[in-house]
């Protein structure tokens, strides 16, 4: 565990070197400007518009950062050959991957939390109301982010940064279409197609499970059972994806 945390700490430092804190400043400025421009146009719905755009923007930015920063993390280690120095130490390859995963998840998670707190601060200052239930959405978006990062680590364990980003975005898109894939598969006449789409449906991450943005915007708190289910599902899913990634990375030839 100490070895994993050491890799995670280094990954956090490496990601911070990319000056991603700038994203926070840009997000904060954009939120204030958008709030000033859009609130008067929304005919009394300014609070809803700011909350929606704030939550959607923070989730989208954190996901994109995780995909694009994460897809080059492993590749850089291989490219600069620093991986040889790490592997010479008593650390398993799977532990190295888990460390990378935790480092990236921690950094982008803090970024996401920072952006959500900015939305809360904006609502408190402008609309004199602090909807703490937004924190429920933050927790589930963090879980969604964890699954996305697990896929980034999986794809980067065997392919190039460009393809890693491409495949991960593909997973995000299909993960949001999971229900439609199952529905259309069941509409055809071939039972084989129905079985295949069924298997594909269960294998895909059900990202809509983590989407409670609409719910919290309308003032409805996330029910504890949904929260518990989503967190358990996410942790198990991340574990499964990282196990596959570790198995692939163990066999990878670094030359």
């Amino acid at each position: 565990m100490i070895r994993v945390l050491a890799v995670a700490r280094n990954t956090v430092r490496e990601v911070l070197r990319e000056r991603i804190v700038l994203v926070l400043a840009i997000f904060g400025a954009a939120l204030v400007v958008a709030s000033q421009i859009l609130s008067p146009l929304a005919l009394g719905e300014g609070k809803k518009v700011v909350t929606d755009f704030g939550l959607a923007g923070s989730s989208l930015l954190a996901t994109l950062l995780a995909v694009f920063l994460g897809s080059s993390l492993l590749h850089k280690e291989l490219d600069r050959r620093t991986i040889y120095a790490v592997m010479a130490k008593p650390i398993r390859r799977a532990e190295f991957l888990v460390g990378k995963f935790l480092g990236l998840w921690t950094t982008t998670g803090f970024l996401l939390a920072g952006m959500t707190l900015m939305v809360l601060a904006q609502l408190t200052v402008v609309h004199h109301e602090t909807p703490w239930i937004l924190l429920g959405s933050l927790l589930l978006t963090l879980m969604e982010l964890g699954i996305v990062i697990a896929f980034v680590i999986l794809f980067s364990s065997f392919t190039t940064p460009g393809l890693t980003a491409f495949f991960t975005i593909g997973v995000i898109v299909t993960g949001n279409f999971a229900d439609q894939i199952l529905y259309f598969g069941g509409q055809g006449e071939s039972p084989m197609v129905a079985v295949l789409t069924g298997a594909f449906y269960w294998a895909l991450p059900h990202l809509s499970t983590f989407n409670v943005r609409g719910m919290v915007t309308h003032g409805i708190a996330v029910p504890p059972e949904r929260m518990a289910f989503a967190v358990t599902y996410a942790l198990l899913y991340m574990g499964a994806v990282l196990t596959v990634a570790g198995a692939i990375f163990e066999r990878r030839d670094f030359r």
Binding site: A42, V49, L55, N176, R213
Partner: peptide, 21 residues
């Protein structure tokens, strides 16, 4: 809704603002 990829409520706000305009 399908194309919004989980950001339906933000897409609804854009349509609402467009409707007001």
């Amino acid at each position: 809704r399908q194309a919004a990829l989980g950001y339906e409520t933000a897409a609804a706000d854009i349509a609402w603002l467009r409707g007001i305009q």
